[in-house]
Amino acid sequence: MPEPPSHTPQPPGPLPHLQGREALPHIYIDEKKRGIVSWIMIIFLSITVLSIPIGVYLVSKRTNILPQAANEAPQLLESINLETDNNNLSDGAVFPVRVNVRSDAMEANLFAVLLKFPPQNLEVVKVATDSGLITKWVELDFDNLTGTAKLTGAVPNPGLKTSNNQTFTIATLFFRAKGSAKTAITLDYAAIYRNSDNQNILKDKKDLGLNINFSAASTPAPPLIEKPNLNSNISALIQTPSGGEVYSYYKALSISWNPTNISQVTNLNLYLNGGLYASLGKSLENTGRVLWQPSSNLPLQLITSQNIFQLELQGIDKSKRTFSDLSGPFGFSAGTDFVSVSSSAAVLNESQKSLDFISKLFSNYNLPQLKNPEVDLNQDRSANDLDLFLLRRAL
């Protein structure tokens, strides 16, 4: 029996298009499977490639993924605003109006406002300045006939600086509402003066709108602090010191007063920085003059430019009524010469009356060495209450 043909596979012959050429040997490649590291690299490269267009888009849109408030700097403000508890008032109601100030960016030493209000609808009952922020008041006045109120207060060097969004009340005016009307209290003028260079830095001011009617709840009037009634109406009795002088500590001081309407002088008192310090005499003869030796009552350590003195004369007038009269402020020097009030201080010119000049005075207030000698109105080489008194007298 013939053997069946062999089925042993034979290597394929050259392809037709390769016939006549040397056949290449067949190479068998055993492809390895990709490991986990290779897959991680592929995924990483894919993410990187895909993130490029996304990044380009975000940059082109300038997208900020942080909260907007986190990038906003706190707003610094120098402002004066008027504020009350209730803008709806009844006829006859007494209500407070607070004068609020801010000086966030820098120290300020002078705050000035001129308020205007309709006198037919509003009247000022009193002004309270017990906040303690303003230590020196240059002007504090109101006129219910013209409907105006003027407040100029100072905080001597280094001045006052507020924190962000913090306001201070420098004064509170109590008004009484009259009639029925929609009205307003306006800041006709307002200024905040910087302590460093005495420039007005006010950026914002806010008036106060009010609605007076007959249906709003009435606000009780606050208790008024009246000046003590001393019965007598005589005043301006003390002639020397008149205010602003600087006397020698070592020389006797001649104190004089007008004796015309006085029946009896009961007390002569010495005040130091606004408080009673000592009695200089009791039951004095009404001669109109007495000599006093400062060194007999005052220790030498009190003789500084920061200490301000006043005299008080008390007694009974010819109508048997009691009186009290306070002199202008004066000072003492450890020198032997009397320092008189300068002639230029008696009548200040208009530039000296300006607010920037007043701000300069308080930038130099009680400094050991004056930066601006022009504010030394009585030429005692110091800017203090004596100069403030002369300034008030000239305004």
Score class of each variant (00 low, 15 high):
residue 147 G to W: 09
residue 389 F to M: 02
residue 233 N to K: 08
residue 32 K to Q: 13
residue 35 G to C: 15
residue 269 N to T: 00
residue 306 Q to S: 15
residue 66 L to H: 04
residue 77 L to Q: 10
residue 65 I to N: 00
residue 6 S to I: 12
residue 22 E to V: 11
residue 350 E to F: 09
residue 310 Q to C: 11
residue 165 N to L: 06
residue 354 S to V: 03
residue 368 P to F: 04
residue 83 E to N: 08
residue 156 P to L: 07
residue 262 I to V: 12
residue 89 L to H: 07
residue 251 K to I: 07
residue 114 L to M: 10
residue 192 I to L: 14
residue 93 A to P: 00
residue 332 F to S: 09
residue 176 R to D: 05
residue 264 Q to I: 08
residue 59 V to R: 11
residue 362 F to Q: 04
residue 137 W to P: 03
residue 3 E to V: 13
residue 335 G to Q: 06
residue 162 T to N: 03
residue 84 T to V: 07
residue 245 E to R: 01
residue 170 I to F: 02
residue 380 D to H: 02
residue 218 S to F: 04
residue 78 E to T: 14
residue 389 F to Q: 04
residue 313 L to E: 06
residue 119 P to S: 09
residue 135 T to Q: 10
residue 261 N to E: 08
residue 373 P to H: 09
residue 304 T to M: 04
residue 238 I to N: 00
residue 309 F to H: 01
residue 328 G to W: 05
residue 109 N to A: 06
residue 122 L to Y: 02
residue 5 P to L: 13
residue 136 K to D: 13
residue 98 R to A: 13
residue 171 A to Q: 01
residue 169 T to K: 01
residue 132 G to Q: 11
residue 35 G to N: 15
residue 364 N to Q: 06
residue 215 S to T: 14
residue 39 W to M: 14
residue 23 A to K: 15
residue 77 L to A: 05
residue 18 L to A: 11
residue 48 T to Y: 11
residue 364 N to T: 11
residue 66 L to E: 05
residue 143 D to W: 07
residue 136 K to T: 11
residue 184 A to G: 00
residue 50 L to G: 11
residue 127 V to R: 10
residue 160 L to P: 00
residue 191 A to H: 11
residue 75 Q to G: 12
residue 334 A to F: 11
residue 19 Q to L: 14
residue 20 G to A: 13
residue 13 G to H: 09
residue 76 L to K: 15
residue 260 T to P: 00
residue 328 G to H: 03
residue 82 L to Q: 07
residue 325 D to Q: 09
residue 128 A to W: 09
residue 359 S to C: 10
residue 372 N to M: 06
residue 152 T to L: 14
residue 303 I to P: 01
residue 320 K to P: 02
residue 89 L to E: 14
residue 55 G to H: 12
residue 111 F to M: 12
residue 244 G to H: 02
residue 284 L to T: 00
residue 345 A to C: 10
residue 56 V to A: 14
residue 200 N to T: 06
residue 52 I to N: 09
residue 211 N to E: 07
residue 351 S to E: 12
residue 200 N to Q: 06
residue 104 D to N: 11
residue 78 E to H: 15
residue 266 T to L: 00
residue 271 Y to N: 00
residue 376 D to R: 01
residue 295 S to D: 09
residue 105 A to C: 06
residue 51 S to G: 09
residue 22 E to F: 06
